[in-house]
């Protein structure tokens, strides 16, 4: 009976809320997807944090800081949405820190030059937006509301990245080369961000049926390519894919095969920065322990000192 009601509500585009009945598998899938998403926002701050002190101007530094702060907020919205499903923040974090939980593989690539801040904003945030906009209509209420908030903030991320690329590509020959080099390194990992092809995607079908996902990995990837190619042309940069060409029959760009061996290798923990990212994350958490403890000690002291005041 509750199962049938659940299916009817999904069918009718009604949102499912935390205390509503839901199948255990729906709950598990959401916890996995939302927590992976939250972890990605948090780990995603690391490659960019690396460039805060080396940004080329005060303006760029302030922008980069604001973007990174947004990403921390995105992580928070998503952890909070995940907690409504009955998992604790502490458990979620310890799954990340033990290496058990996954986060987006893209953040296991290094940010080698300032142009990477441009390429990341343009391509990585661009691909994230492509994934996230349909998630504003995902069937679980708290997740959908978090995504609406996130999408509102994301568009500045992509625009600031593209603007960095624009500035570099209109600069000196060396600067233009820097931008091209960043595009070369971030292009394929960005396409991999949409996940394995539909034929190989284990969770896809059920997730689409439950309206957790709204479009398949391949559909979103194609949209991203179609959107990004003209943007690269405007920059005067070349997308590193000799097979990329417009296909008038499909009304889409055709593109070359993705190196899925590389993708799975990075997922399994052997990307260029997997170890470094996890190490930095665990370190930040452990070195912050005294701050969390002190805040609790302070709160207890305050509470003992004064009776609560109504306002």
């Amino acid at each position: 009976m509750p199962a049938q009601l659940f299916e009817e509500r999904i069918e009718g585009e009604e949102k499912i809320e935390p205390r509503d009945w839901m199948p255990e598998e729906y709950r598990r899938t959401l916890i996995r997807q939302i927590s992976q998403h939250a972890h990605s926002e948090i780990v995603g701050m690391l490659p960019e944090g690396n460039w805060v002190t080396r940004a080329p101007s005060l303006k760029r530094k302030a922008i980069l800081l604001a973007k990174i702060q947004d990403e921390a907020g995105h992580g928070l919205y998503l952890y909070a949405a995940c907690e409504t499903l009955g998992v604790s923040r502490e458990d979620l974090l310890s799954e990340l820190h033990s290496g058990k939980a996954k986060y987006s593989s893209i953040f296991n690539y290094p940010a080698l030059s300032w142009a990477d801040m441009g390429a990341i904003g343009w391509l990585v945030d661009g691909a994230a937006i492509m994934n996230q906009i349909p998630l504003c209509r995902t069937s679980y209420g708290p997740y959908a509301r978090a995504m609406v908030r996130i999408c509102k903030e994301e568009s500045f991320h992509q625009r600031q990245g593209y603007e960095i690329m624009l500035t570099l590509s209109r600069g000196t020959e060396v600067q233009k080369q820097m931008a091209q080099d960043a595009l070369n390194r971030w292009w394929w990992p960005s396409l991999m961000m949409f996940g394995p092809g539909d034929a190989d995607s284990v969770h896809s079908l059920q997730n689409l049926r439950w309206k957790i996902k709204r479009f398949s990995n391949d559909e979103l990837r194609q949209r991203f390519v179609d959107m990004t190619v003209p943007q690269a042309e405007l920059l005067g940069l070349n997308i590193p894919d000799p097979l990329l060409r417009w296909n008038p029959d499909r009304n889409h760009y055709d593109f070359g095969p993705i190196d899925w061996d590389e993708f799975w290798n990075v997922v399994r923990g052997n990307g260029p920065c997997n170890r470094e990212r996890l190490h930095d994350r665990v370190n930040a958490h452990e070195e912050g322990a005294w701050v969390r403890d002190a805040a609790i000690a302070h709160a207890i002291k305050q509470r003992n000192r004064q009776a609560p005041v109504a306002s």
Partner: peptide, 12 residues
């Protein structure tokens, strides 16, 4: 209502 967060006390 906009969401939730963890904090040590109301001020925080």
């Amino acid at each position: 209502h906009v969401g939730s967060l963890h904090a040590a006390d109301p001020q925080m």
